[in-house]
């Protein structure tokens, strides 16, 4: 099989590959130390035994005071189950609902955060991540609960780093919803509502009315009002391929798409299989066969996946082919849907 490494590359058995072996030999200088250096964790042990009665009394007094304050200020709202969003740091004068925001200000659901051309902010996304809000950005927190954080980006640019499991962080825009699949990414929305997503690490899913795209690290995709997400391209793909894919994002009909499909088929490298896979159901049906054939050359379909099956829209076959691309399980990246 074309994408199966030999035994030596896979597990070190079998006949040694001289290039791999040479690389192992010279690169060992960069290997982590064995044994590794000691882990320096902060001392989280309980209070030391040598406390004086004065310390104990002071702590007890503080505890009583805090209990008293809590009792007096308790407003009988439901308990907050999720860590709230807060401004971790800011530059200039961002506002929350037009009022000046300061560091540690809490951003509640329904509130708008806005930055002008001279201001920016870094938000703590509960306990699950961080959001850098660029100048000239306007966003609204829709929901912040333990299982889901959802924000609307009206315009501007955000840089998200999320360390929660997939499907916990959503960014809604006029043209698509970005679903975090364990990643870091930048999302920009212009005044017309067109979005540009660039993924730095992990994955992001884009969805709009059933149309979905999956963008891996080092790749980007556009989103378009009324159309939804476009097709991802790797940032190091040829400029011609990227331009052709952008044209295909909005072109309709075989005549309008023909030239761009020619370019994509000609320019695609094996790593651009992810782009071709997305194009299968984005191009006119009369052109789908060409996309499938090129994908077959670059990343042969696994057993059980046929050209006719994929051409006829067999979702299971398409998913199986996806899994053969080595980009993770289709079941995994669709998990967010079932949440």
């Amino acid at each position: 099989m074309a994408d199966t490494p030999d035994d030596y590359l896979w597990d070190g058995t079998g006949d040694a590959d001289v290039v791999v072996q040479r690389l192992e030999t010279v690169l060992v200088r960069y290997r982590s130390a064995d044994p590794p250096p000691p882990l320096r964790l902060p001392d989280l042990t309980p209070a030391p035994a040598g406390w004086t009665w004065r310390t104990v009394a002071a702590v007890a007094a503080l505890l009583l005071l805090s209990i008293g304050v809590s009792w007096l200020t308790y407003d009988r709202r439901p308990a907050v189950v999720a860590e709230p969003w807060r401004i971790a740091s800011l530059l200039g004068s961002p506002t929350i609902d037009r009022a000046p925001a300061v560091s540690r200000t809490r951003l509640d659901a329904g509130r708008w955060l806005e930055t002008d051309r001279h201001s920016s902010a870094i938000l703590d996304v509960g306990r699950i991540g961080r959001l850098n809000v660029a100048p000239q950005t306007r966003l609204r927190l829709i929901e912040s609960s333990e299982g889901e954080h959802r924000v609307a980006l009206e315009r501007g640019s955000i840089e998200a780093q999320i360390w929660a499991p997939p499907g916990r962080f959503f960014v809604e825009t006029a043209s698509a919803t970005a679903i975090d699949l364990g990643c870091a990414y930048t999302l920009t929305v212009d005044d017309a509502g067109t979005g540009t997503l660039s993924v730095t690490a992990g994955w992001v899913g884009l969805e709009h009315r059933g149309r979905e795209s999956f963008i891996p690290a080092d790749a980007s995709a556009r989103t378009y009002p009324k159309l939804g997400p476009g097709v991802p391209t790797f940032d190091d793909a040829s400029a011609a391929l990227r331009a052709a894919v952008r044209a295909l994002d909005t072109a309709r009909g075989a005549e309008a798409q023909q030239a761009a499909v020619d370019v994509v088929v000609r320019e695609a490298r094996s790593q651009d299989a992810v782009t071709l896979w997305h194009l299968i159901d984005r191009v006119d049906r009369s052109l789908t066969g060409r996309v499938i054939d090129r994908l077959q050359v670059l990343a042969p379909a696994p057993p059980g996946v046929t050209r006719d099956g994929v051409l006829s829209g067999n979702r299971a076959m398409r998913d199986k082919w996806w899994e053969a691309l080595g980009l993770g399980s289709a079941a995994w990246w669709r998990t967010w849907r079932q949440k």
Binding site: P5, S270, E323, A324, L325, S329
Partner: peptide
């Protein structure tokens, strides 16, 4: 493992 196989090979 399949993903790792493919990534290693490619």
């Amino acid at each position: 493992p399949d993903s790792v196989r493919v990534n290693l090979c490619r």
